[in-house]
Simulated scan of single mutants.
Amino acid sequence: MNAPSAAPPLVRVQDLKVHFPTSSARHAPVVRAVDGVSFDVPRNTIVGLVGESGSGKTTTGRALLRLFAPTAGRIEFDGVDITRLTEKALLPWRRRMQIVFQDPYASLNPRMTVAEILGEALDTHQLAQQRRAARIAELLERVGLDAGHARRYPHEFSGGQRQRIGIARALAVEPAFIVADEPVSALDVSVQAQVLNLLQDLQRDLGLTMLFVAHDLAVVDYLCDEVVVMYLGRVMERGPTREVYGNPRHPYTQALLSAAPVPDPRAPRSRILLKGDIPSPVDPPSGCVFRTRCPHAVDACAQTVPPPAEAGPGHQAACLRLDALQAEPLNRTIA
């Protein structure tokens, strides 16, 4: 875990919205994948972005890299608003922002050798042209692979090795910021630990800033300095990981943490079971989007979108009943 920096954040997201039309019709309904998200990614830290499937995590991460066009809001990278830059104007910024994809089997071109995959990024940004082979060898060794692997094709590697190649590709252009989109979810548990340790070492040694998208709360607890909890396109809670995990204030965060495995199976604990299913992002609930499943919802929750409220040092939760709940312990089962 890294100490918080007094410098301005490397990435600042303000009221970000990403909506997708359901059809080409002029007034077609839209999928509100991301619907007013705000958070910072401090320099030289790893921020975890967590939530259920369909919460908007991946869309948020890709929108920060402008892989998805924002519908509204503002994305600042190193103090510069990149929200509506043209593709040509974005090119220098793309070198500083890279992504590691979730599926190592689908993210590498099977017709290209490892040298060609890594060299493609170098060629795009015209880097290391006089020492291309040496740079590729350095990248492979940096992620724990042999330089001789450069001549092989992706199908000759295991899933963990392929993900290391994906990480090397992201590092090729010496970025400042990496979005890791569930990079270990497709890997065996034993391999997951190796890749997580690699990411942690790279972040420390290279001074990287990272947004780590995940649904595994234990992984986020192990790796991330701060955590942002999303539900149905909005931020429910955010803050230092140890503070949020140790004192969850939003009912949704409490429910997520109650479902997370614990090392000691004999430890006393009880699940908080939420009612119903996550609503459709095409027609989200009014007011607080979590209210239809929240055991503490009152009439006011249907009328007002809760703003982020202070819940501790650097810790915020978006709940109208924050003061009343006062972080109830996770010892209730809700049918």
Rank of each mutant, 00 (worst) to 15 (best):
A3H: 01
A3Y: 00
P4H: 06
P4R: 12
V11A: 00
L16D: 07
H19T: 04
T22P: 02
P42Y: 05
P42D: 03
P42S: 05
R43S: 14
R43W: 00
V47R: 01
V47F: 00
V50G: 00
G54V: 03
L64P: 07
F68K: 01
T71Q: 07
G73L: 07
I82A: 06
T83C: 10
T83R: 11
L85E: 09
T86G: 15
A89V: 10
R94P: 11
I99H: 06
P104W: 06
A106C: 05
N109T: 10
T113H: 12
L127P: 07
L127F: 04
R135A: 12
I136L: 13
E141N: 14
R142K: 14
R142W: 08
Y153W: 13
Y153S: 10
S158E: 08
G160P: 10
Q161H: 09
R162P: 07
Q163K: 02
L171P: 05
V173A: 14
P175T: 06
F177A: 04
I178W: 00
V179S: 00
V191Q: 03
Q192V: 09
Q200I: 01
Q200V: 09
Q200L: 13
D201Y: 05
L202N: 11
G207A: 04
H215A: 07
V220A: 07
L223H: 05
L223P: 05
V228Y: 03
M230T: 06
G233I: 11
G239R: 04
G246K: 11
H250P: 09
S258M: 10
A260D: 05
I272E: 08
G276M: 12
P284Q: 04
D299F: 06
A300L: 13
A309S: 13
G312Y: 10
P313N: 09
H315C: 03
A317D: 07
D323C: 01
A327T: 14
E328G: 13
L330W: 03
